[in-house]
């Protein structure tokens, strides 16, 4: 396999006496969907929060490698730079859109940094200079393209909070993609979706994987989603990695079966 996009090495996160993530290592590859699964309390979300800068890990390395071989040590970066410079985007289990802003504005916000640069930190924005106008148009075009891809074009000017649940999830993914990420982290993207929406989500994630040159890392409880779309699955239990491999390999791993179903004491 080629060089990994994200390399997590001996990641450990302690909260007081509790070790939520214990020396976990794994790799995420470009154009791959990598799923992290595990029973409740396994440390999935904690690991995720470390990668996206919500938590500073107790120890361990989280290294993101761009195409030009620049390496970013995510655990040492100021939180907003993880998105701005390292290009990691994430979504949430409980959707966090800017509910009062329109769908279009939500997608424009994600392109904030490029627009700020084009507007010479807003001075150009006030006077509406041609450079800013061009950047604004380009940003709008990109936003429209993503709205089209997730099928919410007709709702462009509605407040994000007024969208149906399934559409909000897709908008959140579209917004994350508008930041031009190299790594897209999704926290339970299928939670609360009906089977049809779940199907659409699978199609969307596959199309992002195949066409957008990103690596996708997701946490998911819905096994139908995980088993169907993941190229690579990592199983955590009590903060430790217990299995790592393709869907078939993981499914047949006795350690995984034990963690999920328990074993009969003989």
């Amino acid at each position: 396999m080629s060089q990994p996009l994200l390399s997590v090495n001996q990641l450990t996160m302690r909260f007081g006496g509790l070790t939520a993530v214990d020396a976990v290592s794994f790799d995420v590859y470009r154009n791959h969907i990598t799923a992290v699964i595990g029973p409740n309390g396994a440390g999935k979300t904690t690991a995720f929060n470390c990668i996206t800068g919500f938590y500073k890990p107790t120890s361990g390395d989280i290294v993101l490698i761009h195409k030009d071989d620049t390496e970013y040590k995510l655990q040492e970066m100021e939180d907003f730079r993880i998105s701005q410079t390292a290009k990691v985007a994430r979504t949430f289990q409980n959707i966090r859109l800017f509910g009062g802003m329109t769908v279009l504005e939500n997608l424009m916000i994600a392109q904030h940094n490029r627009l700020m640069k084009a507007s010479a930190f807003t001075i150009g924005g006030i006077f509406n200079t041609p450079t800013y106008q061009r950047a604004q148009e380009a940003a709008k075009k990109k936003a429209l393209a993503w709205m089209d891809r997730v099928g919410i074009t007709d709702r462009a000017d509605d407040p994000a909070a007024s969208l149906p649940y399934g559409a909000q999830r897709k908008l959140e993914i579209a917004r994350a993609m508008c930041t031009d990420p190299v790594l897209l982290c999704l926290d339970e993207p299928a939670a609360g979706l009906n089977p049809k929406e779940s199907e659409e989500l699978n199609a969307l994630l596959r199309s992002i994987r195949d066409h957008d040159d990103v690596g996708i890392l997701l946490i998911e409880h819905d096994m139908s989603v995980v088993m169907e779309i993941s190229d690579h699955i990592i199983v955590l239990d009590y903060g430790r990695k217990i299995s790592d491999g393709t869907a078939t390999e993981v499914r047949n791993d006795p350690a995984v079966i034990k963690a999920y179903l328990g074993v009969v004491e003989e």
């Binding site: 996206t52 800068g53 919500f54 939180d79 907003f80 730079r81 993880i82 998105s83 701005q84 985007a89 994430r90 949430f92 966090r96 800017f98 509910g99 009062g100 802003m101 504005e105 424009m108 916000i109 994600a110 392109q111 904030h112 940094n113 627009l115 700020m116 507007s119 930190f121 807003t122 924005g125 006030i126 604004q136 917004r175 930041t179």
Partner: peptide, 26 residues
Amino acid sequence: LISKTSLGRAQRACEQDMKMAMLLGI
């Protein structure tokens, strides 16, 4: 400024959800 420029958008975004704005690189 508040309604049309990217700075204004960022301000409104911070107003609604500062953490999320940060995660979008603001």
